[in-house]
């Protein structure tokens, strides 16, 4: 059987909000040692989301054998919306069962809610993501990245991200004109405001803003976002929830026609 309790249930609510616009149906994998995982591509196979909540990130975690649970994410989100942000959330499933149970407990235990979501069989392709040394690693406030993506999307459809010793430049162009936003590394002691750019070699890649904007739905999970880039490779946009897990998004670049 599988049983996992998150004292801070709001994290699971935020995780669902971070994936449900990108993916309709997905297989969650519960693993005895690794934890609770999901890997899924969007329907056009342009982007991928990979999330993991570590087994020891849960207040209680029991998983006797690996378990695959296919869920409709919109329906899962409907149920999790019924949990209050302060609630603890426990997930439970039997090895051969066809439902997953969600239990919400209010902090004072005066309200206990039980929801059962029907599981579904989903054919999914699992992609092997090679371990790569990226040419560039950018760490910046997640709210700043969200702001840049949403601002540029009002001007154009794609963003060129170019990274050099000068900093990281986000550029777009559209019918009404152009926009460029440049960020420079800072020496902020305040970790939330830190901008750091590790540069192995300069990179210039173009991505669809629609997907990047969808990734920023994970902003409430973390004050900082980590962006990794290499020439001619998908971008990685990662939000780390300290001591709990992470959600990583991959997006294939656009190339010249």
């Amino acid at each position: 059987m599988f049983e996992a309790r998150l004292t801070e249930g709001a994290i699971l609510k935020k995780v669902l909000d971070s994936v449900k616009d990108l993916v309709t149906d997905a297989n969650f994998e519960a693993d005895p040692t690794e934890g609770f995982k999901l890997q899924a591509m969007d329907s056009s196979h342009v982007s991928l989301v990979s999330l993991k909540l570590h087994a020891d990130g849960f207040a209680h975690y029991r998983c006797d054998r690996p378990l695959t649970m296919g869920m409709n994410l919109a329906n899962m989100a409907k149920m999790l919306k019924c949990a209050s942000n302060e609630d603890a959330i426990t997930m439970k499933a039997d090895d051969a069962g066809d439902v997953v149970a969600f239990m919400f407990e209010s902090p004072g235990q005066e309200k206990i809610s039980d929801f059962e979501l029907k599981l579904m069989d989903i054919d999914s392709e699992h992609l092997g993501i090679p371990d790569t040394e990226y040419a560039v690693t950018i760490r910046m406030p997640s709210a700043e990245f969200k702001r840049i993506c949403s601002d540029l999307a009002t001007i154009g459809d794609t963003v060129a991200i170019s990274v050099s010793k000068e900093g990281v430049k986000f550029s777009t162009t559209g019918d009404i004109g152009d926009a460029n936003v440049t960020l420079r590394q800072n020496s902020e002691d305040d970790k939330e405001k830190m901008i750091s750019i590790e540069l192995g070699e300069p990179v210039n890649l173009t991505f669809a803003l629609r997907y990047l904007n969808s990734f920023t739905k994970a902003t409430p999970l973390s004050d900082q976002v980590v962006i990794r880039l290499s020439p001619q490779l998908p971008i990685v946009v990662q939000y780390v929830v300290v001591d709990v897990g992470y959600i990583s998004y991959y997006l294939a670049p656009k190339i010249e026609d």
């Binding site: 993501i129 794609t158 173009t206 669809a208 490779l233 998908p234 294939a252 656009k254 190339i255 010249e256």
Partner: peptide
């Protein structure tokens, strides 16, 4: 603007 590549071109099945 530009041709969107497929993710499967980068990652192994």
């Amino acid at each position: 603007r530009g041709k969107q590549q497929n993710l499967k071109a980068f990652f192994t099945m």
